[in-house]
Protein backbone atom coordinates (compact mmCIF):
# COMPACT_ATOMS: atom_id res chain seq x y z
CA UNK A 1 0.00 0.00 0.00
CA UNK A 2 2.77 2.41 0.94
CA UNK A 3 4.50 1.39 -2.24
CA UNK A 4 1.43 2.26 -4.28
CA UNK A 5 1.06 5.62 -2.52
CA UNK A 6 4.72 6.29 -3.23
CA UNK A 7 4.16 5.42 -6.88
CA UNK A 8 1.07 7.60 -6.99
CA UNK A 9 2.94 10.58 -5.54
CA UNK A 10 5.91 10.25 -7.88
CA UNK A 11 3.57 9.62 -10.80
CA UNK A 12 1.63 12.82 -10.23
CA UNK A 13 4.85 14.80 -9.92
CA UNK A 14 6.24 13.38 -13.20
CA UNK A 15 2.84 13.77 -14.82
CA UNK A 16 3.08 17.52 -14.33
CA UNK A 17 6.18 17.70 -16.50
CA UNK A 18 4.57 15.42 -19.09
CA UNK A 19 1.53 17.67 -19.13
CA UNK A 20 3.62 20.78 -19.78
CA UNK A 21 5.51 19.13 -22.66
CA UNK A 22 2.40 17.54 -24.13
CA UNK A 23 0.66 20.92 -24.13
CA UNK A 24 3.37 22.16 -26.51
CA UNK A 25 2.74 19.22 -28.82
CA UNK A 26 -1.00 19.89 -28.71
CA UNK A 27 -0.41 23.50 -29.75
CA UNK A 28 1.64 22.48 -32.79
CA UNK A 29 -1.02 20.01 -33.78
CA UNK A 30 -3.75 22.52 -33.15
CA UNK A 31 -2.38 25.35 -35.26
CA UNK A 32 -0.97 23.27 -38.12
CA UNK A 33 -2.00 19.60 -37.82
CA UNK A 34 1.67 18.84 -37.38
CA UNK A 35 3.07 16.11 -35.17
CA UNK A 36 6.31 17.62 -34.01
CA UNK A 37 8.65 14.70 -33.45
CA UNK A 38 11.53 17.08 -32.67
CA UNK A 39 9.86 18.42 -29.52
CA UNK A 40 11.78 16.10 -27.15
CA UNK A 41 15.02 16.82 -29.02
CA UNK A 42 14.47 20.53 -28.35
CA UNK A 43 13.68 19.60 -24.76
CA UNK A 44 17.12 18.04 -24.43
CA UNK A 45 18.72 20.95 -26.27
CA UNK A 46 17.25 23.17 -23.56
CA UNK A 47 18.50 20.80 -20.86
CA UNK A 48 22.03 20.97 -22.30
CA UNK A 49 21.86 24.77 -22.54
CA UNK A 50 20.82 24.82 -18.90
CA UNK A 51 23.74 22.54 -18.10
CA UNK A 52 26.19 24.87 -19.88
CA UNK A 53 24.77 28.01 -18.27
CA UNK A 54 24.92 26.27 -14.89
CA UNK A 55 28.47 24.92 -15.15
CA UNK A 56 30.01 27.90 -16.96
CA UNK A 57 28.27 30.80 -15.24
CA UNK A 58 26.95 29.13 -12.11
CA UNK A 59 23.34 30.12 -12.76
CA UNK A 60 20.70 28.11 -10.93
CA UNK A 61 18.90 25.78 -13.39
CA UNK A 62 15.54 27.38 -12.63
CA UNK A 63 16.90 30.87 -13.27
CA UNK A 64 18.13 29.82 -16.73
CA UNK A 65 14.52 29.35 -17.82
CA UNK A 66 13.88 33.10 -18.39
CA UNK A 67 16.98 33.11 -20.60
CA UNK A 68 16.12 30.05 -22.72
CA UNK A 69 12.41 30.75 -23.17
CA UNK A 70 12.77 33.80 -25.48
CA UNK A 71 15.44 32.00 -27.54
CA UNK A 72 13.20 28.99 -27.99
CA UNK A 73 10.19 31.16 -28.81
CA UNK A 74 12.14 32.72 -31.69
CA UNK A 75 13.43 29.29 -32.76
CA UNK A 76 9.89 27.97 -32.82
CA UNK A 77 8.65 30.83 -34.98
CA UNK A 78 11.60 30.31 -37.35
CA UNK A 79 11.02 26.55 -37.62
CA UNK A 80 7.42 27.17 -38.59
CA UNK A 81 7.96 30.13 -40.93
CA UNK A 82 11.10 28.89 -42.67
CA UNK A 83 10.58 25.13 -42.78
CA UNK A 84 7.11 23.78 -42.09
CA UNK A 85 5.22 26.54 -43.90
CA UNK A 86 7.01 25.56 -47.11
CA UNK A 87 5.55 22.06 -47.26
CA UNK A 88 2.89 21.35 -49.85
CA UNK A 89 -0.50 21.63 -48.19
CA UNK A 90 -1.77 18.20 -49.26
CA UNK A 91 1.25 16.37 -47.87
CA UNK A 92 1.80 18.35 -44.72
CA UNK A 93 0.89 15.54 -42.30
CA UNK A 94 3.39 12.92 -43.46
CA UNK A 95 6.08 15.27 -44.64
CA UNK A 96 6.06 17.34 -41.46
CA UNK A 97 6.76 14.23 -39.42
CA UNK A 98 9.75 13.44 -41.64
CA UNK A 99 10.91 17.05 -41.56
CA UNK A 100 10.77 17.34 -37.79
CA UNK A 101 12.36 13.89 -37.57
CA UNK A 102 15.26 15.31 -39.57
CA UNK A 103 15.45 18.20 -37.10
CA UNK A 104 15.53 15.76 -34.19
CA UNK A 105 18.40 13.81 -35.75
CA UNK A 106 20.25 17.04 -36.47
CA UNK A 107 19.94 18.18 -32.86
CA UNK A 108 20.88 14.77 -31.45
CA UNK A 109 23.97 14.62 -33.66
CA UNK A 110 25.07 18.12 -32.65
CA UNK A 111 24.53 17.44 -28.95
CA UNK A 112 26.44 14.16 -29.24
CA UNK A 113 29.32 15.89 -31.01
CA UNK A 114 29.56 18.84 -28.64
CA UNK A 115 28.76 17.24 -25.30
CA UNK A 116 29.77 13.61 -26.10
CA UNK A 117 27.39 10.72 -25.49
CA UNK A 118 27.96 10.38 -21.76
CA UNK A 119 25.45 11.28 -19.06
CA UNK A 120 25.34 14.86 -17.82
CA UNK A 121 23.52 16.10 -14.78
CA UNK A 122 23.03 19.31 -12.86
CA UNK A 123 23.36 19.22 -9.09
CA UNK A 124 22.31 21.97 -6.76
CA UNK A 125 21.95 22.10 -2.98
CA UNK A 126 18.24 21.43 -2.79
CA UNK A 127 17.90 18.50 -5.15
CA UNK A 128 18.96 15.61 -2.94
CA UNK A 129 16.62 16.01 0.01
CA UNK A 130 13.11 14.61 0.24
CA UNK A 131 9.87 15.69 1.78
CA UNK A 132 8.40 12.90 3.91
CA UNK A 133 4.64 12.67 4.43
CA UNK A 134 3.78 9.58 6.42
CA UNK A 135 5.56 6.70 4.73
CA UNK A 136 5.79 8.50 1.38
CA UNK A 137 8.92 10.44 0.58
CA UNK A 138 8.93 12.85 -2.34
CA UNK A 139 12.22 14.40 -3.53
CA UNK A 140 12.22 18.19 -3.40
CA UNK A 141 13.56 18.54 -6.94
CA UNK A 142 10.53 16.66 -8.29
CA UNK A 143 8.19 18.83 -6.23
CA UNK A 144 9.88 21.96 -7.62
CA UNK A 145 9.64 20.51 -11.13
CA UNK A 146 5.93 19.89 -10.63
CA UNK A 147 5.47 23.42 -9.30
CA UNK A 148 7.28 25.03 -12.23
CA UNK A 149 5.42 22.89 -14.76
CA UNK A 150 2.07 23.60 -13.09
CA UNK A 151 2.76 27.33 -12.92
CA UNK A 152 3.79 27.46 -16.59
CA UNK A 153 0.70 25.52 -17.60
CA UNK A 154 -1.48 27.90 -15.58
CA UNK A 155 0.13 30.90 -17.28
CA UNK A 156 -0.29 29.22 -20.66
CA UNK A 157 -3.98 28.58 -20.01
CA UNK A 158 -4.40 32.15 -18.81
CA UNK A 159 -2.83 33.48 -21.99
CA UNK A 160 -4.89 31.17 -24.20
CA UNK A 161 -8.18 32.04 -22.54
CA UNK A 162 -7.84 35.71 -21.57
CA UNK A 163 -5.46 37.52 -23.89
CA UNK A 164 -6.27 38.75 -27.40
CA UNK A 165 -3.35 36.71 -28.72
CA UNK A 166 -4.76 33.61 -27.04
CA UNK A 167 -8.15 34.24 -28.59
CA UNK A 168 -6.60 34.65 -32.01
CA UNK A 169 -4.64 31.44 -31.48
CA UNK A 170 -7.72 29.49 -30.44
CA UNK A 171 -9.70 30.93 -33.32
CA UNK A 172 -6.97 29.78 -35.71
CA UNK A 173 -7.06 26.30 -34.18
CA UNK A 174 -10.84 26.08 -34.38
CA UNK A 175 -11.44 27.40 -37.87
CA UNK A 176 -8.67 28.88 -39.93
CA UNK A 177 -10.80 30.39 -42.69
CA UNK A 178 -13.28 31.92 -40.29
CA UNK A 179 -10.41 33.35 -38.24
CA UNK A 180 -8.98 34.94 -41.37
CA UNK A 181 -12.38 36.40 -42.23
CA UNK A 182 -12.55 38.29 -38.94
CA UNK A 183 -9.13 39.76 -39.59
CA UNK A 184 -6.74 37.42 -37.79
CA UNK A 185 -3.42 37.01 -39.57
CA UNK A 186 -3.49 33.23 -39.27
CA UNK A 187 -0.05 32.66 -40.84
CA UNK A 188 1.59 34.87 -38.27
CA UNK A 189 -0.46 33.40 -35.42
CA UNK A 190 0.53 29.89 -36.50
CA UNK A 191 4.19 30.91 -36.24
CA UNK A 192 3.63 32.33 -32.75
CA UNK A 193 1.80 29.14 -31.80
CA UNK A 194 4.96 27.22 -32.63
CA UNK A 195 6.98 29.73 -30.65
CA UNK A 196 4.83 29.18 -27.57
CA UNK A 197 4.98 25.41 -28.09
CA UNK A 198 8.76 25.41 -28.24
CA UNK A 199 8.91 27.70 -25.21
CA UNK A 200 7.28 24.88 -23.20
CA UNK A 201 10.25 22.73 -24.26
CA UNK A 202 12.59 25.42 -22.90
CA UNK A 203 10.85 25.40 -19.51
CA UNK A 204 10.73 21.59 -19.58
CA UNK A 205 14.44 21.43 -20.36
CA UNK A 206 15.37 23.55 -17.36
CA UNK A 207 13.25 21.38 -15.11
CA UNK A 208 14.48 18.15 -16.68
CA UNK A 209 18.12 19.11 -16.12
CA UNK A 210 17.27 19.50 -12.45
CA UNK A 211 15.55 16.19 -11.85
CA UNK A 212 17.34 13.60 -13.98
CA UNK A 213 20.66 12.85 -15.70
CA UNK A 214 20.44 13.01 -19.49
CA UNK A 215 22.34 12.05 -22.65
CA UNK A 216 21.75 13.01 -26.30
CA UNK A 217 19.91 9.85 -27.39
CA UNK A 218 17.47 9.92 -24.47
CA UNK A 219 14.99 12.02 -26.42
CA UNK A 220 13.81 8.88 -28.29
CA UNK A 221 12.23 7.50 -25.14
CA UNK A 222 10.40 10.80 -24.68
CA UNK A 223 9.05 10.82 -28.23
CA UNK A 224 7.17 7.58 -27.58
CA UNK A 225 5.86 8.71 -24.19
CA UNK A 226 4.69 12.14 -25.34
CA UNK A 227 3.13 10.76 -28.53
CA UNK A 228 1.21 8.21 -26.46
CA UNK A 229 0.00 11.01 -24.19
CA UNK A 230 -1.31 13.25 -26.95
CA UNK A 231 -2.98 10.35 -28.77
CA UNK A 232 -4.69 9.12 -25.57
CA UNK A 233 -5.71 12.70 -24.76
CA UNK A 234 -6.90 13.35 -28.29
CA UNK A 235 -4.65 15.09 -30.80
CA UNK A 236 -4.88 18.85 -30.53
CA UNK A 237 -6.64 19.07 -27.18
CA UNK A 238 -4.51 20.89 -24.60
CA UNK A 239 -6.77 19.89 -21.70
CA UNK A 240 -6.99 16.29 -22.90
CA UNK A 241 -3.22 16.11 -23.17
CA UNK A 242 -2.79 17.45 -19.63
CA UNK A 243 -5.26 14.93 -18.19
CA UNK A 244 -3.76 12.04 -20.14
CA UNK A 245 -0.29 13.15 -19.02
CA UNK A 246 -1.16 12.96 -15.34
CA UNK A 247 -3.04 9.67 -15.85
CA UNK A 248 -0.13 8.04 -17.67
CA UNK A 249 2.36 9.56 -15.25
CA UNK A 250 0.49 7.90 -12.38
CA UNK A 251 0.24 4.56 -14.22
CA UNK A 252 3.97 4.74 -14.95
CA UNK A 253 4.76 5.55 -11.33
CA UNK A 254 2.59 2.69 -9.99
CA UNK A 255 4.06 0.11 -12.36
CA UNK A 256 7.57 1.41 -11.72
CA UNK A 257 7.36 0.75 -7.98
CA UNK A 258 5.48 -2.57 -8.28
CA UNK A 259 6.98 -4.22 -11.40
CA UNK A 260 9.97 -2.68 -13.15
CA UNK A 261 11.13 0.13 -15.43
CA UNK A 262 10.61 -1.82 -18.68
CA UNK A 263 6.94 -2.44 -17.95
CA UNK A 264 6.48 1.11 -16.71
CA UNK A 265 7.58 2.42 -20.11
CA UNK A 266 5.62 -0.25 -21.95
CA UNK A 267 2.43 0.99 -20.29
CA UNK A 268 2.56 4.11 -22.47
CA UNK A 269 2.47 1.95 -25.59
CA UNK A 270 -0.23 -0.31 -24.19
CA UNK A 271 -2.42 2.77 -23.65
CA UNK A 272 -1.48 4.09 -27.10
CA UNK A 273 -2.51 0.90 -28.89
CA UNK A 274 -5.67 0.46 -26.82
CA UNK A 275 -6.72 4.03 -27.56
CA UNK A 276 -6.13 3.59 -31.28
CA UNK A 277 -8.13 0.36 -31.30
CA UNK A 278 -11.04 1.55 -29.16
CA UNK A 279 -11.22 5.27 -29.78
CA UNK A 280 -8.79 6.49 -32.48
CA UNK A 281 -9.75 10.14 -31.94
CA UNK A 282 -8.61 9.97 -28.30
CA UNK A 283 -10.63 10.42 -25.15
CA UNK A 284 -10.88 14.21 -25.01
CA UNK A 285 -10.19 15.17 -28.60
CA UNK A 286 -13.63 15.80 -30.02
CA UNK A 287 -14.14 17.11 -33.52
CA UNK A 288 -10.61 18.34 -34.16
CA UNK A 289 -8.91 15.02 -33.65
CA UNK A 290 -11.38 13.21 -35.83
CA UNK A 291 -9.66 10.65 -38.03
CA UNK A 292 -6.07 11.67 -37.58
Amino acid sequence: MTLLLQGLGLGILTGGLYALLASGLSLYFGVMRVVMVAHPAFLFLAAYLTYTLHTALGIDPLLTIPLTVPVFFVLGVLVQRLLLARLAADQVQMMSVLLTFGLALTIEGLLGTIYTGSYKSVTVGYDTKSLTIGAVSLPYDKIIAFGVAGLTLAVLFGVLVKSRFGQALRATIQHREAARLVGIRTDRVTGYGFGVGLATAAVGGGVLALITPFFPASHWAWIGKLMAIIVVGGLGSVVGAALAAVLLGVVEGMVLVTVDATWATLMFYVFLFLTLLLRPQGFFGGRLAHRF
Partner: peptide
Amino acid sequence: ESQIHLTATGVLLVLVVLFMP
Protein backbone atom coordinates in the same frame (compact mmCIF):
# COMPACT_ATOMS: atom_id res chain seq x y z
CA GLU B 1 32.59 7.25 -34.06
CA SER B 2 31.44 10.86 -33.73
CA GLN B 3 27.70 11.52 -33.68
CA ILE B 4 27.91 14.09 -36.45
CA HIS B 5 26.72 11.52 -39.02
CA LEU B 6 23.30 11.79 -37.38
CA THR B 7 23.31 15.50 -38.10
CA ALA B 8 24.29 14.82 -41.71
CA THR B 9 21.42 12.35 -42.05
CA GLY B 10 19.02 14.78 -40.41
CA VAL B 11 19.99 17.73 -42.58
CA LEU B 12 19.76 15.58 -45.71
CA LEU B 13 16.28 14.41 -44.68
CA VAL B 14 15.15 18.00 -44.15
CA LEU B 15 16.55 19.04 -47.54
CA VAL B 16 14.96 16.11 -49.40
CA VAL B 17 11.58 16.70 -47.78
CA LEU B 18 11.68 20.43 -48.49
CA PHE B 19 13.09 20.49 -51.99
CA MET B 20 12.84 17.04 -53.54
CA PRO B 21 9.91 15.10 -52.09
